[in-house]
Every structure is written in structure tokens, then in C-alpha cells.
Design a protein around this nucleic acid. Structure first.
Lengths: 147, 147
DNA sequence: GGTTAGACTTAGAACTATTCTAAGTCTATA
DNA sequence: TATAGACTTAGAATAGTTCTAAGTCTAACC
């Protein structure tokens, strides 16, 4: 814990993928390396850009396939904040988010274990899949320092 | 309160729009009539289909423009649950949502005033814009009644 | 160390939801 | 009733994502 957001060695990443039953191809290792090198929030385009910083080596289709696979395997989590904008969050601890639609910035809120307690019972024959809490914020228009 | 989700007369809708400083054109009245005739959750496509049930009279561009205007004026609220899927919610009371990604169904949760209490302080120079709580659920795979 | 079936990756086309554009129409005010 | 500006429209454009079909790699077996 905590180590995840240091730079990880390829061997560590390979191990991490294997533990989740993911065949560690070179593309997947590269993408996981990017996701876990923090900061923790990327959209697909960010991942594509970072993975190909030097030279285009991973296709867009693979980035999407891989992110989808990682979500399915529980390695990363999707956060939906706007139509046509999905963030992939490599922090899988329970936590919530601040989202500033002006800047497009997404920030973690340490889970305080709040919302779940007082939820009403789930609808019949359903089970919990996750709780997303997004606190939308905007830059304050201060009277002292008018924009 | 409560009346909003009975069928409203055009005159009432016109009044509602004027109160929000929205010029009540025939298209806007028709769209508002649809939104407030409940149930409370529609995507743009739903609205477009309902408004043109008899005969195409309102263009897609106008549906989007009008929904955007209603959001800006606080008449309806957007709910983001999946990439490329925005719901428009004509219930503007504080409340949260269940979302079943299997069925695509969105259901209201009466606000219990929970999440806000224990939030950490907002980042510097920002103010609150809203809190979205989405409880993701899925159909239960019961051992008694296997799918 | 080779073979090989199936899994993975790729470029580019296709698709979907949404926004834009530019021209025509309507509204509300005088 | 005239008019300026707001509103609506069809269709093109865009952005993000998924699909397709062909080639490449992986790992399990010999």
C-alpha cells in the first residue's frame, strides 16, 4: 500500500497483472505502468498520449481494450463526470471525488464511510455494485477579488 | 409540490417557464410538458421521441438546445451514469439515484441529507455546485433461482 | 528448442451522442 | 404592423468510443 504510486518496475507490474489473471503483454504492462505511476486520474486520451510519449507503440484500440479489461478485473475504476468524458482511476480504495467542471480537474476525497450507512434498502432482487459520490465544485467568484 | 407530475395544462407550463425567465415558445412548452408529465428520467432521445410522437414537429437540435437551457435555468438536472448517456431529471428536489447498468434504469432515492454533513472542506477558492450520489446496483444472481 | 491454437494488437472504418452552422421563422415590443 | 433579435431547423461536423478483419504474439505442448 502506497507503493502502488511510486514508479513500479516492469517485473512488479507483471506480477500485479498475473495476480488478477491478466496475461501481461508488453502493451498491458506499459499501460499499467502509466496508470500506477500516479497521479491517479486519466482519461483514455491521456493514457494513449503517455504510453506513446516517445514513439507510437500502442494503438488506440488497445488502450480502450486494455482499460476495459482492467475495469472488468477490478484494477481500475471508471468515473463518469460529463458526457463523453470518462476518467480511469487507479486508486481502488473506497473514496469519492471533487470535480471542477470549469478546470476539468478531478480530485480524490478520502472515503469517510458516510453515504452507505443511511441508504434506503436496495430494490428487490438487486445487489450493490458500487457507490459513486461526485461533489461538483466551481471556482468562487469572490467579491474581494473579482475575476 | 406533487402537482408537477400530474399532466399540466399548457397555460401552467407557460407560467412555469416565464417564472424562470424562459420565453415560452411552442417547442419549449411541448418539451417541458413531456419532462414534467413524469416519470422523471429521460435521455435526449426519449424526449425527442415523445415530443414527436404524432408527427415530427421539434428538431433534434432544438431538443438539445432546450434541455441545455432548462439545465442552465435550473428547471431540470443532468445525471451522468455512463459515457454517452445523459439523463435529464425533472425532479429538482435534492435526491440521489439508483442506477442499474444492466437494465439502464435510473430510480430516485429520497435525499436523506447524508453525504453533505461529513464532507471534507472544499478546495481553496471553490464553492459547492452540487453533490451527485449514484448507487450502482445489479440484478442479484440468486443461488435459489439461478439465471 | 520448435509448433501451434487461440489470444492479442492493429489501422482504419463505423457508430453514437452531441454540437455547430447558416439560413429561415417567430416573438414581443413599439 | 414593423422590426430586431431570439429561436428553430436540416444537415454537416465533431469527439469519443467500438467494431472489423487481418496480422502478430504468447504460452502450452511436444
Amino acid at each position: 500500500m502506497g507503493m502502488k504510486f511510486q514508479m513500479m518496475q516492469p517485473a512488479q507490474i507483471t506480477e500485479l497483472l498475473r495476480r488478477r489473471q491478466i496475461t501481461p503483454t508488453s502493451q498491458r504492462v506499459k499501460i499499467a505502468g502509466t496508470l500506477f505511476a500516479g497521479p491517479a486520474h486519466f482519461c483514455a486520451e491521456d493514457v494513449y498520449a503517455r504510453v506513446n510519449e516517445d514513439d507510437a507503440e500502442v494503438s488506440k484500440a488497445t488502450v480502450y481494450n486494455t482499460l476495459g479489461l482492467f475495469v472488468a478485473k477490478g484494477l481500475v475504476r471508471q468515473v463518469f463526470v460529463e458526457p463523453g468524458k470518462v476518467f480511469y482511476d487507479s486508486n481502488t480504495q473506497p473514496h469519492h471525488h471533487f470535480y471542477d467542471s470549469g478546470t476539468g480537474e478531478l480530485t480524490d476525497i478520502d472515503a469517510v464511510g458516510v453515504a452507505l450507512h443511511e441508504l434506503p434498502p436496495l430494490p428487490a432482487d438487486t445487489e450493490l455494485d458500487g457507490v459513486d459520490v461526485i461533489v461538483r465544485i466551481r471556482q468562487r467568484q469572490s467579491k474581494d477579488r473579482p475575476a
